[in-house]
Amino acid sequence: MATVTLTVNGKSVTATVEPRTLLVQLLREQLALTGTHVGCDTSQCGACVVHVNGDSVKSCTMLAVQANGAQVTTIEGLATGDKLHPMQEAFRENHGLQCGFCTPGMVMSAVDFAKHHKSPTEQQIREWLEGNICRCTGYHNIVKAIKAGTEAMGRTA
C-alpha cells in the first residue's frame, strides 16, 4: 500500500491506496467523487477526464500514486456554489448533453480547450474532441456549446 496526498477541488486529501489503483478509482471509490466516469478500458472515451495541475488528462490512464502532490480538479469542483461555470452553463443552454454520462469528461476537456483558444473554429473544436466520445448528441450541440462556453470564458477572464 502507498500513501498519497493531493489537492482535489481545492481540498487537501490523503489516502492509502494499492499502487495499482487508478486515479479515477481513488476519486470515485475513496473520495466519493462519482461525477468522473469510466466508459472504456482502452483510454479512448474520455468520460474520465479531469484536470491534473491544470491540464486535462484521462484519470483512467494515470495511477493514483502518480498524482501524489498534484492539484486535481474534477467536474464537482467546477461550479462556484450554485453558480455554474460558464462552460457548464453553455452546455445547458445549447443542449450539449443527453444521457449525461460523457458530460463530465466532455466539460473538463472543453474547459482545457478554452484555455488555449479564444475564438475557436468549429474544426478546431471537433479536432480537440478526438479523445471524448459521445454516443447521444452527434456532437452537433456539444460543438455549439464549446464555442459558446469558450467565448463566455474569454469574456469573464
Partner: peptide
C-alpha cells in the same frame, strides 16, 4: 441538466 453538469 443541473445534476448531470455538476457530476451529481
Amino acid at each position: 441538466d443541473s445534476r448531470f453538469l455538476t457530476g451529481r
